[in-house]
Simulated scan of single mutants.
Amino acid sequence: MPDCFCLCAVLLGLLILTLAGCIFYSGLLADITVKTCCPTFNKLTFAYKFKEGAYKDSGELLKEARCIGLGLPCLGVFYEDPKKISAPLCRYAVGCILSEGENKVDEELLKQCKSSGFSVFSFPQVTHVISTSFRHTALFSTYFRVRRVYPQLERYIKVRRV
């Protein structure tokens, strides 16, 4: 009987450590900093796919963009406030950054993106941005991003009236 109790206690401890590790790894406990700043880039050339629907489904596009642009930074553009617009009508674009500033886009990568159904857009240079970041390390990171980052962005914008 004591051996069974010890085994259960060890298994319970391992389960708790595993859950804590998953929560930490997913970003639930990560600090979120929102700031107004000068962008760290001049202009961006962005390969993206546009979708309508719940923002929680953007993870699939992010995964696809990561496969196409291995090692390239990814970006999501979310157009609506999900509190004001129903999920099926929300619009977003997700993809990878092909080049920054005056750097040229790799032609092979550009062809690969286009053949995979990605569109290409160049964001012009801007002088100020509201910036935040939240790592995407697990499938449920998108859920945490929606629940934690958006309210902080909204609060930041309301307080500063930008």
Results as ranks from 00 to 15, higher is better:
M1R: 13
P2D: 05
F5N: 01
F5I: 04
C6Q: 13
C6H: 12
A9F: 12
G13R: 05
L14P: 09
I16Y: 14
A20R: 13
G21Y: 10
G21A: 13
C22Y: 08
I23G: 00
I23P: 04
I23M: 03
F24T: 00
F24V: 01
Y25K: 00
L28T: 01
L29R: 04
V34C: 10
C37I: 07
C38W: 06
C38R: 14
T40V: 09
N42H: 12
K51V: 00
E52G: 03
Y55H: 08
Y55S: 09
K56E: 12
D57L: 11
D57M: 07
D57N: 14
G59H: 08
L61G: 11
E64T: 15
E64Q: 15
R66L: 13
C67F: 11
C67W: 11
C67M: 09
C67A: 15
L70G: 12
G71S: 07
L72F: 15
P73V: 02
C74Y: 03
G76H: 08
V77Y: 12
F78M: 09
F78W: 15
F78Q: 09
D81Y: 11
K84R: 12
S86G: 01
C90W: 02
R91G: 08
R91S: 13
A93G: 07
V94K: 09
G95W: 02
I97R: 08
L98A: 10
L98S: 06
E100Q: 10
E102A: 08
N103M: 04
V105H: 06
V105F: 08
V105I: 10
D106Y: 07
E108F: 06
L109W: 02
L110S: 06
Q112W: 07
Q112H: 09
C113F: 13
K114A: 00
K114R: 13
S116A: 13
S116V: 01
S116M: 11
F118N: 09
S119W: 08
F121S: 04
S122G: 02
S122L: 01
F123R: 02
Q125H: 08
Q125C: 06
V126D: 02
V126W: 12
V126E: 10
H128M: 00
H128K: 11
H128P: 03
V129L: 09
I130H: 06
I130R: 03
S131E: 14
S133N: 05
S133L: 03
F134M: 00
R135A: 03
T137G: 14
F140A: 04
F140N: 11
S141L: 05
T142Y: 13
Y143L: 02
Y143D: 00
F144D: 00
V146L: 11
V149A: 02
V149C: 07
V149P: 14
Y150C: 02
L153Y: 03
E154I: 01
V159Q: 14
R161A: 11
